[in-house]
Design a protein around this nucleic acid. Structure first.
Lengths: 235, 235
DNA sequence: CGTAAGACTAAGCAAGCGCTTAGTCACTGT
DNA sequence: ACAGTGACTAAGCGCTTGCTTAGTCTTACG
């Protein structure tokens, strides 16, 4: 049985600030931070199982054994990344909802900020959205609780908007799921080679959300697609 | 260099018909079909790299070496699955569009049938949507061409709806991406334990799509969520 | 100065991996 | 009757994997 290191976690606020630092780990960062960055990069790029502990070690500038000074196993590294990532995402959601007094503004702000988070932290976001089922059952359950909280926050905004008459939708659960699909899917299709800025993507998804709940500004002029606007569907 | 078997492909029409056959491979099916089913099951469940060729072999009722009688490598198995899966998806899309004369009906039919496909073939759909980047560059390029076709079909329906004045949207590319996000994401959250039928999910997504393009039936009564309707966000 | 603790590496182990080899068996055509 | 063919397996090869061990170096502290 492996001697499990007592699970370091590196200030989650720091993690929010260190946004898109690029391919090679920041040599100024602590070793634990560099390991988490290297793991996020590799897990997002190739997936948990295709990533070797040697990939992570060399990405952080360590020998293969250096990983195990700080993390008891590869799965523990994934868990730390996944947990802090979910917590970071939840913080964004809560802040976005708090930034506006009424459901329509809350929904717009929520979609914009959460989409921007998926773009700016797209490596972490990919791990959060697509790698959590490789966790051990115990760790998976812990992360699932955070995911349910995220879902509940979105549903709550929708329910209050329906109650106030500002939203006109058929079903809160279905609509919440569709809204989250639009955001979560950003982590799948986004690539740094895409030219749209995080703010543009956020604004687009906020506008789409308001349409979906029947709270969009009255009417817009229909406009045919120009080649300048649309992103490629795949990298 | 490995002696590559001349790439069997098993009638794609057959593949469409054999929908959700469950966990264990159909013993009536041919060996190639059983291998593809076992691979789809394992790849969807654990991902390409976490799946061993021994998993696939035993899932198809063969010894580990039996796989290599029919496929030259594990990647070739993924490629066959991915290619026939993309072709099957494309066929659904085209049939859905052909089933209706005007853009609103085409969009509704497209969203409904494509969503249903993601549910009924959810193991294949997961491989199609989430495993294709594990292909070799050559094979990846081939399925990317099929993916671009799928995207083009959706955009075409939107553009014709905008041109006819039936759709009122801000940007065709952004809207097409959001619609595809809603459908593709079905493969992520769907699980056979969920109680909603494929037809229900398809109808929901068709209705959401019509709202999103501003072509929904005039107004609906706002209705608060009841516990009976909404699916869980995770398995 | 001595020593204890922590961060790290060189080397390597056992297990599991993708895939191959050599051969068996059932069936087909002549 | 028999050679040929294709589907399949038992055994295993060479390599990579996650992780461990034993030890070095640096820093902190009495």
């Amino acid at each position: 049985m492996p001697q499990t290191t007592p699970t370091p976690a590196s200030s989650a606020l720091e993690a929010d600030l260190r946004a898109g630092t690029g391919l090679l780990s920041d040599p100024e960062a602590t070793t634990v931070e560099r390991l988490m960055q290297a793991a996020a990069h590799a897990f997002a790029d190739k997936g948990f199982h295709a990533t070797t502990t040697r990939d992570i070690a060399s990405g952080a500038g360590l020998s293969p054994a250096g990983v195990y000074v700080h993390f008891g196993s590869k799965e523990e590294l994934l868990f730390n990344l996944s947990r802090t990532g979910h917590e970071s995402a939840l913080r964004q959601l809560r802040a976005a909802i708090a930034a506006s007094p009424a459901p329509p503004g809350q929904l717009a702000s929520l979609m914009a900020r959460f989409s921007e988070w998926h773009v700016e932290q797209y490596q972490v976001a990919r791990v959060v959205q697509y790698e959590h089922h490789h966790l051990t059952p115990e760790h998976h359950a812990e992360v699932l609780a955070l995911r349910k909280e995220m879902d509940a926050l979105v549903r709550d905004v929708l329910e209050r908007g329906v109650a106030s008459g500002e939203f006109a939708i058929d079903d809160v659960g279905d609509t919440a799921l569709a809204l989250l699909s639009i955001v979560v899917d950003v982590a799948r299709w986004y690539s740094p080679t895409i030219k749209r800025t995080p703010a543009q993507i956020g604004a687009t998804n906020a506008a789409l959300a308001l349409r979906l709940v029947g709270a969009a500004e009255p009417r817009r002029t229909a406009r045919l697609a120009t080649d300048t606007a649309a992103p490629p569907p795949d990298a």
